[in-house]
Amino acid sequence: MSEQGRKWVTWFVDYFALAAWLIGYFISGKDLQQATWALVGGSAIALVVGFAVERRLAPFPAIAGGAALVFGGLTLAFHDARFLKVKPTVMNLIFAVLMFGGLILRKHPLKLLLGEAFEMPDDAWRKLTLRYGIFFAALAGLNEVVWRTQSEQTWVLFRFPGLVLITLVFSVAQAPLLMKYMKGDELPPPPVE
């Protein structure tokens, strides 16, 4: 498969379940229980497609898809949307604990994911890990505030695409730190006039 094809598969695996959930929510007349069926089905499809194309389950899609299946399944089994609403809180807290735990153990979880693209000194990995740990903890708190104080529709839109956009903006804000250490052969060529 071409590099472009793999990128499309990555996007599909990462966002198909959430897109199916959002569409299911509005098509069902804003019925979160019915939309959860779309989330669970979409998660299963995304995981199968990811495995079929790559012959493995990438860690983050596997974790996200598995969590969607678990929390979505609990929502459907108990007819209680709170399970689905606390999923972003729980997942972001897990990611925050992984980041902070890595700092305590003097390990750098992000280095495992980004180490091939960035050769950074330990101090830079610590900064990035700390920033992401704080970010994930803040997202968990923000999700709690939104689902407990806002309408269900507001929370749905906050969940997707809101959290994705917030994460994108935060990640782009880390670019100055990462650019200092990006490998020279990965830098784009200078513009030609």
Results as ranks from 00 to 15, higher is better:
T129E: 14
A77R: 09
I45Y: 07
R159N: 15
W147E: 00
V40S: 07
D31W: 11
V97H: 02
A67V: 03
F118H: 12
P188E: 14
Q4C: 07
V40T: 02
G41V: 05
K107A: 13
T89G: 05
W8I: 03
K180F: 04
G42Y: 03
A17C: 11
L39F: 14
A44D: 03
T149C: 01
T129D: 15
K183Y: 03
R55M: 01
I134V: 15
G24T: 05
V146S: 08
M1P: 09
P61A: 01
A44W: 01
T154Y: 03
V169G: 04
I134F: 05
S151P: 09
L112S: 10
K127C: 03
S171L: 06
W155G: 00
F158I: 00
E193P: 10
F60A: 09
Q34A: 12
K111S: 08
E186S: 14
G162L: 09
E116C: 10
A175S: 14
E144L: 05
M91K: 07
L157G: 09
E3T: 13
G42A: 03
G42R: 02
K87A: 13
E186A: 15
A175Y: 11
W8A: 10
A52F: 01
I94A: 14
L103C: 08
V90T: 05
R82M: 06
F60Y: 08
G65H: 03
G115R: 08
I27H: 12
K127A: 10
V156F: 00
H79E: 15
D31A: 14
W147M: 02
E54K: 08
M91W: 01
A138M: 00
H108A: 14
F78N: 15
P191E: 11
R159Y: 15
R159I: 10
S43M: 01
L32D: 15
A38F: 14
H79N: 15
L112H: 10
P61I: 05
G162K: 05
E119G: 07
A62I: 02
L128P: 04
K127R: 14
A17R: 03
A77V: 05
K183N: 12
A175C: 06
F60P: 00
P121Q: 07
D185N: 14
A19E: 07
F118Y: 15
L142Q: 10
A46T: 04
I23D: 03
I45V: 14
E144K: 00
A19W: 07
F158M: 00
R131P: 02
L112W: 13
A173R: 02
G73M: 00
P190M: 10
A17Q: 13
W21H: 10
F135M: 05
M179G: 03
Q33I: 13
P109A: 00
G72D: 12
G184Y: 10
P88V: 04
A64K: 05
P121F: 11
F16Q: 01
E144S: 00
L142I: 12
L130C: 02
P121D: 14
G66W: 08
G72V: 01
E193F: 11
G29Y: 08
W125N: 09
F100C: 11
A20H: 06
L178G: 07
M182Y: 04
Q174H: 02
A17N: 05
A77T: 09
T36Y: 02
L84Q: 12
P188Y: 11
F100W: 11
T89M: 12
G42E: 06
P190R: 05
W37P: 01
I134L: 14
